[in-house]
């Protein structure tokens, strides 16, 4: 269970990006966080694993406080928080297997990491997960040889290798074509129930959020202004979240449309 209480993030003396956010996510539930660009979605996610330092507030994962952790304790906590990125954030020049095993970096010793001598059970788990998402035959391919959807699967497997207690996904489909992004959303949805993980997904595409998640949280200017099931997410909620903010129309329509090509250079 993930509990966020009164989370505030302010860069320098600017207007806070997050203004006292409260959110509780039960295990085994998929939550979509929607909002316009700059609403604070990405910042919120990064506050949870402390890639961004929260200004104040409390974030508790299964009862233990994350905001006060430092050094090795923080790294131990991060092991339990998997993250999937918009740009996949793979290490292009390493093989798929090395990228996947990188999810174990928080567990193995530096020597094991550098020499790639990972424990047998890690390798076993890596193969099992890669088979689950259909990329096992790419194990020794370089990560940059894969297509966008395959790369994001590597990203998902890497996060799952951490044996996470919560999975964060920051715009996981924004760099993918519509069909592939549907597949990735389906994958995240089914993994959440298989592994009974809470999954938080930042997403631009409201149609996908409604289709693949069971709860939608709407952010605007760092405040939560909607929290409910997809069925309740109507025109009024849409207007409240995106109204007056310039956003491409296609993001709001029913047919999902992401960026046409998922290939990153």
């Amino acid at each position: 269970m993930l509990e966020i209480a009164n989370l505030i993030k302010r860069y320098g003396q600017d207007e806070p990006v997050l203004k006292g956010l409260d959110l509780v996510v039960e295990d085994n539930s998929v939550v979509a966080i929607v909002g316009a660009s700059g609403a604070g979605k990405s910042t919120m996610l990064r506050c949870i694993n402390r890639l961004v330092e929260p200004t104040s507030g409390s974030i508790r994962l299964n009862g233990s406080e994350l905001v006060t952790l430092r050094g090795a304790a923080l790294r131990r906590a991060r092991r339990k928080i998997g993250m999937v990125f918009q740009g996949f954030n793979l290490i292009d020049r390493l093989t798929v297997m090395e990228n996947v095993l990188a999810g174990r970096l928080g567990y193995v010793s530096l020597f094991q990491a550098v020499t790639r001598r990972f424990p047998a059970e890690d390798i076993d788990r890596a193969f099992a997960l890669m088979e689950r998402v259909g990329i096992a035959h790419y194990a020794n391919k370089r990560a940059d040889e894969l297509s966008g959807g395959e790369r994001q699967r590597v990203g998902v497997v890497r996060a799952l290798m951490q044996e996470p207690e919560v999975l964060l996904a920051d715009e996981p489909t924004a760099s993918l074509d519509p069909r592939t992004s549907e597949q990735i959303m389906m994958l995240l949805q089914s993994l959440a129930s298989e592994l009974s993980l809470p999954v938080l997904i930042n997403i631009h595409n409201v149609a996908q959020a409604k289709a693949y998640t069971e709860r939608i949280v709407g952010l605007r200017h760092g405040k939560m202004i909607f929290d409910g099931v997809p069925a309740d997410f109507d025109k009024a909620a849409l207007e409240a979240i995106y109204g007056g903010i310039e956003a491409p129309d296609d993001e709001l329509t029913e047919s999902p449309a992401g960026i046409a090509s998922g290939e990153e250079s």
């Binding site: 694993n49 890639l51 090795a72 923080l74 790294r75 131990r76 906590a77 991060r78 092991r79 928080i81 998997g82 993250m83 990125f85 740009g87 954030n89 793979l90 290490i91 292009d92 020049r93 390493l94 090395e98 990188a102 999810g103 174990r104 970096l105 928080g106 530096l110 990491a113 550098v114 990203g155 890497r158 951490q162």
Partner: peptide, 28 residues
């Protein structure tokens, strides 16, 4: 910077982040 961010998110220490996210990128 993005692979670095991803490695930090896995809970890797600084040296491991360098070994995985920095070294492969600067090899060429």
């Amino acid at each position: 910077r993005r692979p670095v961010e991803a490695m930090q998110a896995t809970g890797a220490s600084k040296l491991k982040v360098i070994a995985y996210a920095v070294v492969p990128q600067v090899m060429p």
